[in-house]
Design a protein around this nucleic acid. Structure first.
Lengths: 373, 373
DNA sequence: CATCCAATTGGGAGCGCTCTCATACTTAGT
DNA sequence: ACTAAGTATGAGAGCGCTCCCAATTGGATG
């Protein structure tokens, strides 16, 4: 029976329409379930327009009326219908979050989950909701269309790793406000929030140098991913500054996964580095495993620095020295930038680069400056 | 106070509207971008109604008209406005996914990210979109209201671990279709998709018995979380079947985190178990670490079985024997059940329990039946 | 040739909201 | 007292869609 009620309410709404003209004066059971502005207006003794003004914070409402209306709204727990609002005003207070599941297997690395969480939390604070699309290649084009043109979304956040992503292109053509997580050097017009990968990498190499290492290798990211490119630039710049030679055999590219980190380290071993800067903590931990399996010890034989500072880093053996990304700030930054872009396009900030931080633990040897748990 | 926050939420939407009246007759940039049914109808030489029929797959359209209209829609890349659709039909094709970030720190365990991914993928296949709410306690009540009463969502998926979740309660009162991930023994009416945790646990214990272990301990989940309860029941049942005594000192509860797994194992060591069944792979790996740190070896001294079969399991040292949860099937199951519930409430299935599978690796000693990489 | 019954199609009302405009009611300035 | 400029409110016209109902068509039938 209950299920039947559900049916009536959610499948065939028009049913209600039939009754309207006939039973207009009779108590309509449908209306008891879903309140409308008109209901509130009737109860508060004013018009729909006035209720709308109160809800939207219009100043031109007398104090007494405002209080009366607010009281009714609170008592009846009224929520304005978002679809109607979106239709009438063109704004839905919904942001799209697109995460292309392309190159990297996203969910083996805790970075993305944490990013999602921080974005979600920032949205809540600004009273927006988020729609999530994990864009698998096969559905990508179709999905993008739906998102861009269905008018349900005020703006989009794209957490794309790869450069020249087709999603970014479509977005750019669409006039829908959007912000990317990670800068795109080929495209100066898109708004972005990024982390200072270049200086993060430099910091890592300088620290390894300070700890006495001279043959510093790196497990780099893919070359079509901007974070990989920037971190490699930082690596090379630091070597140059420190007067160390750049040796291509000490650079192995990878795809951020545990497996590729392990394989990369195996390849590096024959070139006998005394330190390795890995592009992610997941790979750093895999590299430590590879070294152990090959009979080397960390940090005695090889020092390791990771990137990200995921929770795993503090718990590895030995605890991992790493470059921390401020994931919470990325989430907050990207959400705030997008909302500003939607609400005040003229004055909104269009890019933001967040600082990275060196977290010293034990994977590069003991250091009195150690600043972590 | 909470209600006040609600009000604040809807404060300053306006903006765009100010421009409207002035440019009404001038070419309106908004309108050029957004096609409507009427536009398509004009171009295809028919009426709005007919276009609507074509879009919604109504059979009462002649073949020639249908083709003509479809052609125009494709050429102009027309997407019907979802807000208008939602308003007129009462259906938005949007599902809510609520993940309460309560008890457990969700994103240190890859289970939830994988679940999100599988749900997202199942939604795409059924042409639904998802809105994601990570429900932090402080925003929870307010959020729930918005979700339930804003009319933007056709149904809700709740991935709640804890029993007696207030979100489930609100949902139950709301008449909005919803499905829970994980059964709730206190509430027979809610629809759910669950995994056979009871028999999964039994399988684990029986396997340990078969491998010659007799003092089998368990790192259990929290007692207010159904998976913990079910797996503990399975553990006890298996002991009874196998004629092993139940020893409460061999049961330590935990919260699924790495830290609590490590601590639990430390506590268990003094009772000298020769096997441990951990309630999650994350904890199983932590337990192995705790054993190593205490000078024991796995599987020689203590055999370990985990639960989940996350990717980490195959890569641990030694590779972890574990009980696999079919996460993809959970996602697909929960999405399909919810959509069925929305579209055909009378005939929809209301519960689904998926089988678990024993994945034999090396953490319980060598076994000829080993069936994994 | 009139009649009937589909099969198609168009028109209209309405979903619940926002926002302009017109109206009534103030308050102040001269 | 009479206008000028607010302030507070209500009425109305949509937003772009769905769905009902009525109208039109083209056979098939009597």
């Amino acid at each position: 029976m209950d299920a039947l009620l559900n049916l009536i309410r959610f499948t065939t709404l028009p049913a209600r329409v039939k009754f309207c003209p006939l039973y207009e004066s009779a108590p309509n059971p449908q209306k008891t379930m879903t309140l409308t502005l008109e209901d509130i207006a009737r109860i508060a003794g004013c018009s729909r327009s006035t209720v709308s003004r109160v809800i939207n914070g219009d100043v031109n409402v007398s104090v007494s009326t405002r209080q009366r209306v607010k009281k009714v709204i609170t008592e009846l727990n009224f929520q304005p219908n978002l679809a109607a609002r979106g239709l009438a005003s063109g704004q839905t207070h919904i942001l799209g979050l697109i995460i292309p599941l392309g190159v990297v297997s996203l969910f083996t690395d805790p970075f993305y989950p944490q990013l999602i969480q921080s974005i979600s939390s920032a949205c809540s604070q600004r009273d927006y909701s988020i729609m999530l699309w994990l864009a698998t290649p096969e559905f990508e084009r179709r999905m993008i269309h739906q998102i861009l043109f269905n008018g349900l979304i005020d703006g989009v956040i794209v957490a794309s790793m790869s450069l020249n992503d087709s999603i970014i292109q479509s977005l750019a053509e669409s006039k829908l406000p959007f912000v990317a997580v990670g800068r795109n050097p080929n495209d100066e017009t898109t708004c972005y929030v990024d982390v200072d990968n270049y200086n993060g990498a430099r910091m890592a190499i300088e620290y390894l140098y300070k700890m006495g290492r001279r043959r510093i290798a790196t497990i780099a990211g893919p070359s079509d991913v901007i974070v990989g490119v920037d971190r490699l630039r930082g690596y090379k710049a630091a070597l140059a500054e420190l007067g160390l030679p750049y040796d291509p055999s000490l650079v192995v590219t990878s795809d951020f996964s545990d497996e590729s980190g392990y394989a990369a380290m195996q390849k590096l071993i024959e070139y006998k580095p005394d330190a390795v800067f890995a592009n992610s903590d997941v790979m750093a931990v895999a590299a430590i495993r590879a070294l152990h399996d090959a009979g080397f010890s960390v940090p005695e034989d090889v020092a390791i620095v990771g990137f990200d500072d995921i929770t795993l880093a503090a718990r590895s053996t030995p605890p991992l020295t790493t470059i921390r990304q401020p994931i919470d700030l990325i989430g907050a930054g990207v959400v705030n930038m997008l909302i500003d872009l939607i609400e005040h396009p003229a004055t909104a900030q269009r890019s933001l680069v967040l600082p990275t931080e060196l977290i010293i633990r034990s994977s590069c040897g003991e250091d009195l400056l150690k600043n972590s748990e």
